[in-house]
Design a protein around this nucleic acid. Structure first.
Length: 510
RNA sequence: GGCCCGUUCGUCUAGGGGUUAGGACGCAGGAUUUUCAUUCCUGUAACAGGGGUUCGAUUCCCCUACGGGCUACCA
């Protein structure tokens, strides 16, 4: 049997990081077993439908490299892949269930049910369920005289189709991650299958489509575990073979309380969405991992390890390595808290592994975007110096600002400590000496500065800090010789000369 | 509240009847580096509690506590 899995989000808003991980595990599982990974849009709730959400889902999956084999966009053998475009097929199965005695029409309006629940809650403390105990007292094709039901149907009265949950039955099923789980049918209620608007609820649509699309493994979040028995019943009543179930642990807030939420994340200053999302109603923009500067590979790597591990000590994986190592058996049962520090660490590791030329190209476009002038030739070297000093590529223009212009400020304390105007002639002689240098590469620079320092009977510790201060405004940062080499002979000597003059002025006014 | 699922360092996790309970992030210290960063080394810190079963439980069972999920004509 060929493995077929699906990622089935609802277009009710931006995809959440937990959704990305669910998609990732589905993707890995499919690839691992040479199967197919499909995207199905579950847009059966027109009230919660959000215009741009599907587009967002597709773009986010694409950015993460989790491109489906079948989807609304590219089609496939089971098209359409949007449930709103499949609305015609669900009613048939609901009718089939009614004929078989597993479902029935219910005519109670939402208002009636609300009132009924309120009364029940007032009496017993908990709202009653629409189930074997109560359906006889409610308005449905099971409780009403057949003629009345027929009349109601003929008159076109509002109705829903509900599943007739069997009485006192234990429903047991195997979960690939959790093992055997069991529920009593008494805890279930007669779920609505077909809504008054004629569209199916999640449960019906999901089961029907998974069957029709020949899904072999349903890999989804733990929030669906409680729906497991309902789905088991549905498959049974429809006479279909059931796909295997695997319920993934949830991603929790860093502070422990609840499912990772955009509110908490926002408060703590990190994203939960793969891409930026602008809420058209509130006008608020939620930050995305992409815009925060994450490499998709780093995000994926981090997410893969949140709830799963390979059983080895390897932590850095390419997507192919993840495919190779992945197995549902090694997925954790307990929820995992989101750790932003570790996500950042993954990103830095990815940056460090990127070659300087690639980095330079991306840094160039970043600089262009910000209107910062740069010398393309020295960019690879600069990127190389900067990549181990930042968590995100986007931090490079800031962290290495002195490569792209004059230092913004000077460390006055270090300046007072390392420089005094009487030293000025010494550094003028150094500039003159460097002026004679033909090769302005780091090694030549180092040799020349060392030779100079020795000749002047100065320690390197007296020369280098001043050089750094004049070059970058700070004593920290990449090796001084590398900085000068990247800046080029003309620019660095010019800057050295100018800033020495400036130092004298600063110390005079201080 | 009811039902379901879970619980190893602060966090992500390995392990599994007898281990110095391993790794990673973070944090701290050290080495290297003219500095910062990187790299390397070292340290820090955990089996939720109580009962069983057992010669022996962190590991198996039960209970409790705690955490999470579900409890809609939402997914």
């Amino acid at each position: 049997m060929d493995v077929r899995v699906r990622f089935a989000p609802s277009p009710t808003g931006p995809l959440h990081i937990g959704g990305i991980r669910t998609a990732l595990y589905n993707y890995l599982f499919a690839r691992k077993h040479g199967g197919r990974f499909l995207l199905r849009i579950e847009d059966t709730d027109q009230k919660r439908y959000v215009e741009k959400a599907e587009e967002y889902i597709t773009e986010a999956l694409g950015w993460c490299g989790l491109v489906p084999d079948e989807s609304p966009g590219q089609g496939g053998p089971h098209h359409p892949y949007r449930q709103s475009e499949r609305s015609g097929i669900y009613a048939r199965y609901a009718l089939h269930l009614i004929d078989a005695g597993h479902a029935y029409y219910a005519f109670d309006t939402e208002e009636e049910l609300e009132a009924w629940r309120a009364v029940g809650e007032a009496a017993t403390g908990t709202p009653p369920k629409y189930d074997a105990h109560t359906r006889g007292k409610l308005r449905n094709s099971l409780s009403l005289p057949p003629q009345e039901t027929a009349d109601l149907l003929a008159s076109g009265a509002e109705k829903v189709v509900r599943l007739k949950i069997p009485f006192a039955e234990t429903i047991v099923f195997d979960d690939l991650i959790r093992g055997t789980v069991s529920f009593s049918s008494d805890e279930l209620d007669d779920k609505v299958l077909l809504k008054a608007d004629g569209l199916p609820t999640y449960h019906l649509a999901n089961v029907v489509d998974d069957h029709l699309m020949q899904i072999t493994h349903v890999i989804r979040g733990e929030e669906w575990l409680s729906s497991g028995p309902l789905h088991v019943l549905l498959y049974r009543f429809l006479g279909w073979e059931r796909p295997a179930f695997a319920h993934l642990p949830l991603i929790l807030n860093p502070n422990g309380q609840g499912k990772l939420s955009k509110r908490t994340a926002d408060k703590l200053g990190f994203p939960v969405f793969p891409l930026n999302w602008k809420d058209t109603e509130s006008g608020q923009t939620w930050m995305g991992f992409r815009e925060s500067g994450f490499e998709p590979g780093a995000l994926i790597n981090f997410l893969a390890l949140l709830g799963w591990n390979p059983g080895t000590e390897q932590e850095l994986f390419t997507i192919d390595e993840l495919v190779e190592a992945f197995s549902l058996e090694r997925v954790h049962k307990a929820g995992a808290r989101f750790d932003y520090e570790k996500a950042r660490w993954f990103n830095q590791e990815y940056l460090k592994r990127l070659d300087n030329e690639t980095l330079a190209i991306r840094l160039a476009s970043l600089l262009d975007e910000q209107g910062i002038l740069h010398n393309p030739e020295s960019l690879p070297a600069i990127a190389g110096m900067l990549k181990e000093r930042v968590f995100f590529l986007r931090e490079m223009p800031e962290v290495g600002h002195f490569f792209f212009g004059e230092p913004r400020s000077f460390d006055q304390k270090m300046l007072a400590q390392k420089y005094k105007p009487s030293l000025r002639p010494v550094f003028e002689r150094l500039i003159a000496a460097l002026q004679q240098l033909d090769d302005f590469d780091p090694a030549s620079l180092e040799a020349e500065v060392k030779r100079f320092a020795a000749a002047e009977q100065l320690g390197l510790g007296a020369v280098l800090p001043v050089l750094r201060l004049a070059l970058a405004g700070t004593v920290q940062g990449p090796p001084a010789f590398d900085m000068m080499s990247a800046l080029g002979k003309k620019a660095s000597l010019q800057r050295l000369g100018d800033n020495l003059i400036r130092f004298d002025q600063m110390l005079a006014t201080a």
